[in-house]
Write a protein that binds this DNA or RNA. Structure first.
Length: 559
RNA sequence: UGGGGCGUCGUCAAGCGGUAAGACACGGGCCUUUGGAGCCUGUAUCCCAGGUUCGAAUCCUGGCGCCCCAGCCA
């Protein structure tokens, strides 16, 4: 809530709420809801909605319900309801005991439907699905009325009861609202209210064989819960007249539906259907694959709830379609991790260095600061010895301009340790560099030369005898194009190099005791977290996001 | 050609008649025991055309462009 108070402006939704409050609407209450359908895992797009709905409730001292929109049993599953709860909670929101299900209201909804029939506002239609489609008309031509449209109330009541009692097969009959077959808004051309589905529901089991449609269910669920502001995405704008219609006909509490633009992210797909196919076709390891934009994927990748909430706040809320640059998400993530992740040294692609003038068998415990951005993170000791590993690409036999790392005859600093100078390069029969012979200057301990000479480069390293082996999973964007699927099948835009598993990485001994989920900055490399696959016997890290790499930029430009 | 929305920097996004915030990205520079972080710095006249006004991104008119809708999905 504090974060919004220092905002100089308010988005259009909060502006509406302010006005409502000013005129005393809803007795000054603000009550929102987050209404997922449990048919898939939550993704970053949902996070925007979650932050909006729960955030508004928090800011205005109101409430936000978690409500599952579970009216289609054939697509829904408890696996999803559990994951949704976990994800919303992880993001940092709480719904107390207000965990609701549209299916909780099936009895009431049925009664409302009966009421509609009694009022002559709904009828049972015998038309087949295909016929209904034909009768609906097109975008430019009006529809025509079903021959069953004017059945008597008694007949409709009887038929609807028998629908409920299972006398008919799926699709044989449908309850429709009687509105206007000539409306320019197709949603108003006698929309379906109840359809027959002989399927068991994850909560109500086999109690029902008829299930209410979204439009009918959603507005009434909002009404029943006393929702004041029903916030949804743009594609429901056309449904608002219908939302309002049901509530007006039934003369019940009438929440206000407000629509905002859903989140789109560059290089990312957000459709649940497409995400599901990535999982089903094994393109990713699961819903929580660290490359997925799902909340659980981001969590496993090492994203923090704070970064996701911060992102939701930064992108704002508006009505125009937009595509947010994924670089913004990554920037906010780095910003957050920079302040909280302890620094540690890890060599991803090791190259052995022997420091010839360093005494054999000697080990020094050097002091290292854990986080320069956070003094309270303290210090640690790291072992230094005659043989160390450095990053293979921190050495160039023939250094290009502006490359100020190690090269023959060059001197660099080893972070927290000494200056070393490369004296010799050892190669194998194939000409592959296998080892560097260096010398160190004892007078540069802790990285400062007593004679005041400077070095341009500072390398991270790890002592060979003390290093721990680890697997590090490096990630790149899942899709190689900014707008996957824009030019055909989105599967064709999959980045074949989105995962690169590095074995034999060498990390500081401290990491042996790191727990899954813990984040670190691998000095000069990026942010990494311990994967859920990790064990003390076999450490596994995920690259969360790389550090900004201005050298890569310089080098990239030259090509 | 029906109905509903939307059009401000490369990308998000403020502005609500008084003379274009901020962020990301990008460029330049400083600093640096992470080529990280930090610091300084550069970059839009508001889809177009008319009109109203002393004055318009903001009001009016007319165009143009983009998105959504023809599930017994949500």
């Amino acid at each position: 809530m504090a974060e919004n108070e220092n905002k100089a402006y308010k988005d259009f939704i909060r502006t509406i709420i302010d006005e409502d409050l000013k005129i005393g609407k809803n007795d000054g209450r603000v009550h929102t809801r987050f209404p997922p359908e449990p048919n898939g895992y939550l993704h970053i797009g949902h996070a925007k909605s979650i932050c909006l709905n729960f955030g508004i409730a928090e800011e205005y001292g109101g409430l936000c319900n978690l409500r599952y929109d579970d009216t289609n049993p054939v697509k829904e599953d408890v696996e999803y309801v559990d994951s949704i709860k976990e994800d919303v909670r992880w993001l940092g929101f709480d719904w107390d005991d207000r965990e609701f299900y549209a299916s909780d209201y099936f009895d009431k909804l049925y009664d409302y439907a009966v009421q509609l029939i009694k009022d002559g506002k709904a009828y049972v239609d015998d038309l087949s699905q295909e016929e209904i489609r034909e009768y609906r008309g097109t975008l430019t031509e009006p529809g025509k009325e079903s021959p069953y449209r004017n059945r008597t109330v008694e007949e409709n009541l009887d038929l609807f009861t028998r629908m409920r009692d299972g006398e008919f097969k799926d699709g044989e009959k449908v309850l429709r609202a009687k509105i206007d077959m000539t409306s320019g808004n197709i949603n108003m051309r006698d929309p379906a209210v109840y359809r027959i589905k002989h399927a068991s529901h994850h909560r109500t089991g086999d109690k029902w064989c008829i299930y209410p449609m979204y439009d009918f269910t959603h507005c009434l669920s909002d009404s029943i819960e006393g929702i004041t502001h029903s916030i949804c995405t743009l594609e429901f704008e056309d449904h608002r007249p219908l939302y309002d219609w049901f509530l007006e006909q039934l003369r019940v509490h009438h929440p206000q539906q407000i629509e905002f633009a859903r989140l789109n992210l560059s290089y990312t797909i957000m459709s649940k259907r497409k995400l599901l196919s990535l999982v089903k076709e094994g393109k990713v390891s699961g819903w929580d694959d660290p490359r997925m934009p799902t909340i659980c994927g981001l969590r496993r990748r090492g994203y923090t709830p704070e970064s996701i909430r911060g992102f939701a706040e930064r992108i704002g809320v508006a009505k125009r379609d937009s595509v947010v640059d994924i670089a913004l998400l990554e920037h906010i993530l780095r910003d957050d991790l920079n302040k909280r992740a302890d620094r540690v040294m890890a060599v991803l692609n090791p190259l052995k260095v022997v420091i010839e003038n360093y005494p054999e068998g000697e080990v020094e415990e050097l002091n290292a600061i854990n986080n320069p951005e956070d003094e309270s993170a303290g210090m640690r000791k790291i072992p230094f010895s005659r043989e160390i590993f450095i990053e293979r690409d921190d050495f160039r036999e023939d250094p290009p301009k502006k490359f100020f790392r190690l090269a023959p005859g060059r001197e660099v600093r080893l972070k927290h340790a000494y200056f070393i100078k490369c004296e010799d390069v050892i190669k194998d029969d194939n000409g592959e560099i296998v080892e560097l012979r260096c010398t160190y200057d004892p007078a540069t301990k802790s990285g400062e030369a007593s004679d005041g000479r400077k070095v341009k480069g500072t390398l991270h390293w790890v002592s060979t005898a003390h290093a721990i082996d680890a697997e590090v999973r490096m990630y790149d964007r899942l899709f190689k194009t900014e707008n996957p699927g824009a030019n055909g099948d989105f599967m064709d835009d999959l980045n074949p190099d989105s995962l690169d598993v590095l074995a034999g990485c060498k990390v500081e001994p401290k990491l042996t005791h790191a727990n899954p989920g813990e984040s670190f900055q691998f000095l000069r490399k990026g942010y990494f977290c311990v994967d859920t696959d990790s064990t003390p016997e076999k450490l596994v890290f995920n690259q969360t996001v790389g550090l900004r790499d201005s050298w890569a930029k310089i080098e990239g430009k030259k090509k």
